[in-house]
Design a protein around this nucleic acid. Structure first.
Lengths: 192, 192
DNA sequence: ATATTCATTGAATTTATATTCAATATATCA
DNA sequence: TGATATATTGAATATAAATTCAATGAATAT
């Protein structure tokens, strides 16, 4: 393994542990020494790879931004399937590649007040809420999604999903809901 | 106004501002000087009334525990009404007495990892999730609530509600959902 | 009116944690 | 092999925020 690769591997190792701790304990509650401790490396070494705790968060959120853009490939013509596929991917990811799941949660948390302003704006710039509005409108036109203000519906749906995902980090033993339970928030009462 | 009353009033003033900041910015992200600053009092004075930041949080969570016990008076014989009434109370509270609403959110946040252990346990001791299971089981027997593991359903419902409420603190201009949208998580597909 | 108690402040002090640094070990390269 | 660069550590240092404290002012009781 080249020097370059070794370096990238260690940075990756640090990012993944930081991500895990940030989303479970919270950013402020996570000490640099927690991260270093869990990896059995010195605090100094961590600073050799990352200039600051905030920089570490920033890189993670940047990863999240990439991922969000890439993930937005659902079938826009079948509104409910669009949401269903996204949801199933998230739930599947939780088991197989937890970091995808954790990254999604981190993005939500990064939008909160109290986060560094630049990071907050970055996260907000790819919020799911706005891009879902158009899909919801189409679904309403097709009679598949319930009546109501599309933006409010979108907020309701995504904040529910966020709540469910955060809860899963705290109680991973409780299974995920059936996707249909969550999609019921959107589904028109009549439609099968 | 007596000395005693004056004292209690100031303590109340501090608690309410702390509550507001804790739930919007987060506990760790809220500085004692933020609270004092917004109240136009000195940091020293705040410590005259509260021995520590953690004590302040503890008293708030204790208030939350009281409130939770008192609020649990819904009609246990009509399962969906039980959840509907609770939800409507919360949404109403957000406008009229925000602190009730904020207290509910604080309780959820207090359950998270990274919070002081004693406070976390206190909050967990009155979690809605467990006490709702019996109501859900009854609702399923009556055909009003969808099939599925009652504990998982309960987790799903409450974590959704929590997500929605936290979101509302960040974007208070977006209206609350119609209660029925959220209750759809629980409602049996057939039932009107 | 005087003494006493409590409210209040602003300036120390302490503490927790992020960040830096000098020194050492280990790997690469000529 | 010797020289150079990089990884790693543990011990300083810096910083931000919590907490304490001595002093002052205002209310209350005697």
């Amino acid at each position: 393994m080249t020097r370059q690769e070794q370096k990238e591997q260690r940075r990756q190792q640090i990012r993944m542990k930081a991500l895990e701790l940030f989303v479970t304990k919270g950013f402020s509650e996570t000490k640099i020494s927690d991260i270093a401790g869990e990896l059995n490396i010195s605090v100094g070494l961590l600073f050799h790879y990352y200039e600051s705790k905030e920089q570490l968060l920033l890189e993670l959120v940047q990863m999240g931004v990439e991922g969000t853009k890439r993930a937005d490939q659902g079938p826009k013509d079948d509104p409910l399937a669009y949401f269903r596929i996204f949801l199933c991917s998230l739930f599947d990811a939780a088991g197989e590649s937890p970091w995808i799941y954790q990254l999604f949660v981190l993005m939500s948390q990064a939008m909160r007040l109290g986060m560094p302003a630049n990071i907050r704006e970055l996260a907000l710039s790819v919020a799911q809420v706005e891009r879902s509005v158009a899909v919801i409108e189409k679904g309403q036109a097709m009679g598949l999604i319930r009546e109501g203000d599309p933006l409010t519906l979108s907020h309701t749906y995504w904040s529910s999903v966020q709540g469910i995902m955060e809860q899963h980090l705290i109680t991973p033993d409780i299974p995920f809901p059936e996707p249909e339970w969550v999609l019921a928030i959107l589904k028109a009462p009549g439609a099968g």
